[in-house]
Design a binder for these strands. Structure first.
Lengths: 150, 150
DNA sequence: TGACACTATATGTCGCGACATCTAATGTCA
DNA sequence: TGACATTAGATGTCGCGACATATAGTGTCA
């Protein structure tokens, strides 16, 4: 198998596994991984417009996350407030319940990431991180991450 | 941001982007990335049972891929033949059309991977590959890859 | 002002992907 | 042989995730 083919499938396999584990851990909170990412982002940066949110979500790069937000609104975690200064826009804010759940999400993510650290063991991570970072920087979904840093 | 958090999101971002590009390139063939993986695997190893196939698919680890196969059968690319020796099993084989399409899939994948190589440039890949390989080996979706090698 | 381009969001559609559940065929063992 | 577990596969459900399209509000410029 070509090295680059293997890289492609490894990335696929690890993404799937991470998502699966995260979904399992989030289930008690009634959230999916995408919803958790959205909630976490809002907790750090509210208020956000739908597009502003969409530009920073890795899970939904490109499209606007209106349907993920639908579910968070139905669950009473997020509010959609029309922006009076530009009535095309919707400003998203967390409800108290949403903020509380966002805190629990942080804990769940930490548990997942601790397991991930255990999986890595004492292997060097920096070279892999550098490579993946450089690759992602050239790609739309990756730039969502840059926006989150900046 | 914790290093391991970044790793998690980088893997997500790169998986999404790869899938998006592959989907675009496969669209002229009328195939999705999952269907392409299935077709390629069958081209190398037919006949396979549904479970046998499922164990080697990275895209659908755990569940059996009966619905992906549904679509390939409808498209006239795959045949489902009951195994006379164990009538619970179904043996999957490619039709001529399926085999032909599998060849075209190989070309599409090579184009994608050439772009991936360009993205990597002259950066070292081996350390990243080692890390990801070791991590995947400890995880179900990753073992699908091992089975494919072995 | 009025035509028209542009932007923000919403919505329809399709194929996953994970989970749970169902059915039929086979194996096991008293 | 007959009760019961096990296995292979099919199927129902839900929430994405990508794409295309629709709609309403805003900006631009003759």
């Amino acid at each position: 198998m070509r090295e680059v083919t293997e890289l492609r499938y490894l990335i696929l396999a690890l993404q799937r596994e991470g998502n699966r584990q995260l979904a399992t851990d989030l289930r008690p909170l009634g959230l999916t991984p995408s919803q958790a990412e959205t909630l976490g982002l809002l907790a750090e940066r509210e208020p956000l417009t739908l597009n502003g949110l969409g530009e920073m979500l890795v899970c939904e790069s490109g499209t606007n996350p209106s349907r993920i937000v639908d579910r968070l609104v139905s669950a009473g975690l997020v509010r959609r407030v029309p922006n009076p200064e530009d009535r095309r826009q919707v400003l998203l804010t967390l409800t108290d319940h949403g903020r509380e759940l966002a805190r629990q999400v942080v804990e769940v993510e930490q548990r997942l990431e601790d397991r991930l650290v255990a999986l890595i063991g004492d292997r060097p991570v920096a070279p892999a991180l550098t490579l993946l970072r450089d690759m992602a920087a050239q790609v739309p979904a990756g730039r969502a991450l840059d926006r989150r840093r900046g």
